[in-house]
Nucleic acid binder design. Sequence first.
DNA 1: TTGAAAGCGGTACCAG
DNA 2: CTGGTACCGCTTTCAA
Lengths: 335, 335
Amino acid sequence: MSLDKVARRAKVSTATVSRVLNNTSVVKGSTRARVMKAIAELKYHPNLHARSLAGGKNRTIGLIASNMENPFFFDIYKPVEADAHARGHEVVVANTDYRPEQLVASIRLMIGRRVAGLAVVVSEMDPALIKELTESRIPVVFYDVGSPRPNITNIRVNYRRGIEKVVDYLHSLGHRRLGFVGHHARLAPINERMRAVLDAVARNPSLEVKTAADADTLEGGRQATRSLLASGYSPTAIVCVNDITAVGALRELRERGIRVPQDVSVTGFDNVKLSEFCYPALTTVHIPRERIGHIIVDALIPQPGAAAAEHEIVIDPEFMVRDSTGPAPSASRKR
Amino acid sequence: MSLDKVARRAKVSTATVSRVLNNTSVVKGSTRARVMKAIAELKYHPNLHARSLAGGKNRTIGLIASNMENPFFFDIYKPVEADAHARGHEVVVANTDYRPEQLVASIRLMIGRRVAGLAVVVSEMDPALIKELTESRIPVVFYDVGSPRPNITNIRVNYRRGIEKVVDYLHSLGHRRLGFVGHHARLAPINERMRAVLDAVARNPSLEVKTAADADTLEGGRQATRSLLASGYSPTAIVCVNDITAVGALRELRERGIRVPQDVSVTGFDNVKLSEFCYPALTTVHIPRERIGHIIVDALIPQPGAAAAEHEIVIDPEFMVRDSTGPAPSASRKR
DNA sequence: TTGAAAGCGGTACCAG
DNA sequence: CTGGTACCGCTTTCAA
């Protein structure tokens, strides 16, 4: 059960057992064998808490996300886990479910665990929390939040550009009446993607838009679309905040007998795998989750040889045209 | 940074600081206030490792899954987290990605963390590992694995029944040539769902089946379907191991111009939310993930008042008919 | 190459 | 109501 039971059984000191466990310094072959034997016989499993307490180190990094349910999260988690393991670290995740209190709790928990690094992939956060975090001296990577500070790396995706590409494309197809399906990011009262749509519309007098929002889920996208349409508004194109909600929108439209893209065009965002598998396949904007994952680990667990990671990284997303968008119906029929 | 810095600053003993932190016993109002003040000023965050080492307790439970990417996992994670939090516990998850080595590593990690309880939601596992686990004295819940033992609870879904319902239904619709799309559960050479299909077919001489398997992902389902069809075999119905792979199958069929359900019927399994949102909506088998989540927490974190949880729980899944299945084409055309 | 012992940061029991 | 203090299980000098 504990180190010294093993030591006793192998007739050595706890120091020696510790040495073979971590194979530090050189232990004589025969002693090592005796220790290993004792460990096996006792089914000994070192207490990780004691280990990090004594060692003052902790080979685990934390990853906090606002919605683990969205495959977007998993796509960044995966490379993070792989890279972290490759560097001998574990990763522990926390889900905030878009709840500010949960974010605070999760961050405190991570600090309490004395993680070696922390990645926070949420939409927005309180400046006080950021302060608390910087003062904890833990290396932190933010995705989509705040500005870089000492020991803080910031990854930012240029949503504005991405949305502009979407809106421009729809405009070029003749769409003038837009709809925007967002989600309640309780943490982000001012959703950058939505703002970008509104701004793009404001810039072009011939465009109009109406917005609706619900949960960041398939069902949420469907509900938002429903309320968008319930008002009597009939957009020719619906821009969704992400792929998941877009798939929800697709369903609502289908059930109303509205064809996509003949009657209404739909766009997603993120380019999650599902966007290729739904029907019709979504026109969307690609965000390189894998790359983001690598950046996170590089920033959190610096490699001996590697150059210091950048502190501010901006990603310009790529537009992907698929089958859910087409010319505005009025463009061919009404004219 | 540490308890006694706080103690020093508040001019009290570490014992007192500990008391206010855990608000055990009664601390005089004024002293408590001083301590709180010191804590705030120092931005003190208790070291959780020290805490669990000293206290000998650990209010966290572990959850190991073989594929976090499948929404099935999240649907069970969610209630587990909610219930655990309600009982003052944290939950830490681990993903094995169907890799046996990773399963071993994850289990060892959990034991090392001295979790208060562990839920293992994987397809299959080594008896030696089960032994290691029972000897660790940690309360364990298995989903779909092994048999109940002391301090081990077993939740089992009657896949066989579920699959039988699917096959019977397809048979009643006139389907005779079946396809089965499975996945490489490297941990489960003998996949129960596949066996059930094979057995059902064996029992009925008029039925034939061919199987294919790939990854447990959208893409995997598509690939498996592709290889199923590449052989020249033309099933009138494809039974998929779960909803995700079924959605992959749907895409492959669509791209080949094969209509579902007119030309080929498709079935999923799990009744994940996506099964309602894909097109066409999947006929599937419902597995009550939420209920499973509750069972897990009840078994791992027993409540004072509650009765002891059962040690063996069998769930009979429910069949759900939706739009991806229909009469076999030959049934109406050839006859 | 190995052992003894001083912590790491808390908790909890025992006095006062 | 508060302080002193013996651990919890392991890592890490310092000596031998």
